[in-house]
Design a protein around this nucleic acid. Structure first.
Lengths: 153, 153
DNA sequence: GTCATTGCAAAGGATTTGCAGTTCC
DNA sequence: GGAACTGCAAATCCTTTGCAATGAC
């Protein structure tokens, strides 16, 4: 959903972050979408309104926002980094066909813990669950076009 | 643990993979260790016995083994890829300090499922759970040296 | 006014690709 | 014998870094 200007200012102030036009644009774009875009996706989106925006700034801003906890980085394999403006507890469904990422909200998954015996003295800060599979669209596509060998994923 | 030559041949044959000296060395090195090495770690290990080994071959071999299911790629953030010769169901404990990865064997975690309502038509193939935290060693180190600001992670 | 942030260009580094020679099945 | 694998070098691509100019607080 769209973020109000007041809310935006409040969030940045709460985390003691300077609010620049670029940051507002990048964070708003990310927070208003649930598609887990890459840095480059965000760059292209934001550049439409701020043509002087540099990709570097997108990366730098995302790293600042990540560190502040306003944004989360999501990993799908070792390809490009993808970002998530939703920092409430949730997990992900990942399509190994088209790489789309869908949020999973499930209180049970939020409560997972490692047994004492397995924890090996770790102090656990959090956890992530990723489900891998084929989304509805990719399943349909596989029915239409029979699978080939050597297909990546 | 060390892998017998017979078992090695059997595994490769079972997956219809050609067994070369390089592949034997790479796979043995990975299967006999539980430290989740990078491609470069494996390269350096294996190069000691096979000095002509190329890093490219390590990458190529790992990709073949991954696709065959003899090896698993593990992601820790978006830095280097790390590999796991243990392909039985298990999950990971990841130290955000020193980046070490420790296996978690827990039947409960293996049984996780997404509720029908959340699955959005996905056909789930598998899932992974990552616990993030500080290992015992990093906790001790933090006590000795008080934390600084701006510390990555 | 000060210091973080920005934009540009260039560097860095993990991984992939092209290709000729070699080797396994 | 032929397809797959290997090694070398070069290319690719995401991300980071250096640095001077700018702008937020």
């Amino acid at each position: 959903m769209k973020l109000s200007s007041d809310e935006l200012h409040a969030r940045f102030r709460r985390h003691a972050l300077r609010l620049t036009r670029q940051r507002a644009a990048i964070y708003s774009a990310l927070a208003s979408v649930n598609s887990h875009p890459t840095a480059d996706d965000l760059y292209r989106t934001v550049k439409q309104r701020y043509p002087m925006m540099s990709l570097n700034t997108v990366y730098y801003t995302l790293s600042v926002l990540c560190r502040a906890g306003l944004v989360q980085e999501v990993n799908v394999g070792h390809d490009v980094a993808r970002f998530d403006g939703n920092v409430t507890a949730h997990h992900h469904l990942i399509c190994v066909g088209c790489r789309q990422i869908v949020d999973v909200i499930d209180e049970g998954l939020n409560q997972l813990a490692v047994s004492r015996g397995q924890a090996r003295g770790f102090r656990i800060l959090g956890h992530r669950v990723e489900f891998h599979g084929y989304c509805a669209g990719c399943q349909r596509a596989m029915l239409d076009v029979p699978p080939r060998n050597g297909q990546k994923h």
